[in-house]
Amino acid sequence: MNQKRFTWFNATSLTFGFVFLYLPIMLLIIYSFNDSKLVTVWGGFSTRWYTALFQNESFMNAAWVTFKVAVLSATIATVLGTLAALVLTRAGKFRGRMLFSGMVYSPLVMPEVITGLSLLLLFVAIGWDRGFWTITIAHVTFSMCYVAVVVSSRLISFDRSLEEAALDLGCNPFNAFMQVTLPIIMPAVVAAWLLAFTLSLDDLVIASFTSGPGATTLPMKIYSQVRLGLKPEINALSTLLIVAVSVGVIAASLIAKRAEQVRARSGDG
């Protein structure tokens, strides 16, 4: 097998691929440490845009709103998504099962513009003031299905006899879930939460549709700022966002991977 052999062709295509993917991001990170006021001209190393950023109240407000929305929506989505995953994997054949699973998963492929627009119509129709809560609810609706996918893929390989053993030893079904099932699927649930958190953090489209006065998220802020002209502060802010998102994604995958290894070692589902 030559699969592991180093060839110039492989090395070149790998380099091109990574450059294509990461060069823009690397540039952005480098220029966030640029001393010059002009975004595209290098003027020496400095962290002054970071300082300026932390002193900019409107940015900090947006960051705080974004953080609150992300934590809250990820938590609600994790609870609802886990419940949906349980029903999808556990309940045998019930009437409308196909419809139900289709409806849980469809937001994955639904264009964001449509989700955002329909949510906007709903909020207007029932007369809710748009703001923090409407963004949170909107984020729950689309991140919930990601949670359902992640958690149900774990539940499919879960050994049901563990739950039966808990019932057999005197647990009622709720306690069996809390004491046995949940701790075992916890890594998947945490990974799902991190995924939902990250999705909420970088959403622009749906937030734009469902936000109102006083509730501007960071991506919205950045977008509106960029339209008025590039400011070096944006680079600093984007770098911080990249760090936050990468930490979230890497943590989620590490947790999932570690849990997989523990499972492989212990040899049970």
């Binding site: 006899s161 039966e164 019932l167 647990c171 009622n172 075992i184 523990v262 049970d268």
Partner: peptide, 20 residues
């Protein structure tokens, strides 16, 4: 009678030990 209230215990084929 639900399983958790029966005077019966079971040893599972897979052992079903709680891994955590």
């Amino acid at each position: 009678v639900p399983p958790n209230q029966r005077p019966v215990n079971m040893m599972f084929q897979s052992y079903a030990l709680f891994p955590h």
